[in-house]
Amino acid sequence: MATETHGEAEAAAGMPQLDFATWPNQIFWLLVTLVVIYLVLSRIALPRIGAVLADRKSTITNDLAAAEELKQKAVTAEKAYQDALANARTEAAKIVAQAKTAIQKDLDVAIAKADVEISAKAAESEKTIAAIRDGAAAAVSEVARDVAAELVAVLGGGADATAVKAAVTARLKG
C-alpha cells in the first residue's frame, strides 16, 4: 500500500496520489471548490448567460418579424401599384373604345350622308346622260336622213323627203 509518510521527502518516494494521508485534505478542498463553483454558476452565471442568449434570440426573432412585416408591406405596396396600373390600363382601354365608337358613329353618319349625296348625284348624272343620249339619237337619225337625202340627190334621183325618212328609220331600227 501507500508509503506511510512522516514528511515530504519520503512522500516523494512513492506515488503521491496513493498517499492516503492527504486524501481528506484534497477531498475537503475539492468539495469546497465544487460547491463554490456550483453556487456561482447556478446563481449568477448560467441564468445570466441563458438570459443573454434568450434576449439575443428574441431580438433576432423580432428583427426577423419586423423584416417579414416590411416585406409584407412592400408586397402590399407592389400589389396596390399593380392594381392601379391595371385599373389605369382598363380605363385607358375603355376611353379608347369609347373614342373609337364615337368616331365610328360620326364616320357612319358621314358615310351615309355621302352615300345619299353620291346616289343623288348619280341619279342626276344618269338623267343628264339619258337626255344627252336621247338627243344624240335624234341627232343621228336627223343626220342620217339628211345624208340619205343628199346621197339620193347626188345620185340623181329626185326622191321625196317622206320616202327617204321612212327608209332611213327602217334601216336605223333594223
Partner: peptide, 22 residues
Amino acid sequence: DQFVVKPLFGHGPIEWYTPTNV
C-alpha cells in the same frame, strides 16, 4: 515530485483543513 501535496505555510502535518497547494 510534482504531484506532492504540501502545506502552503510551514511544514506541519496535513490535516483535512490545512491550506495546501491543492
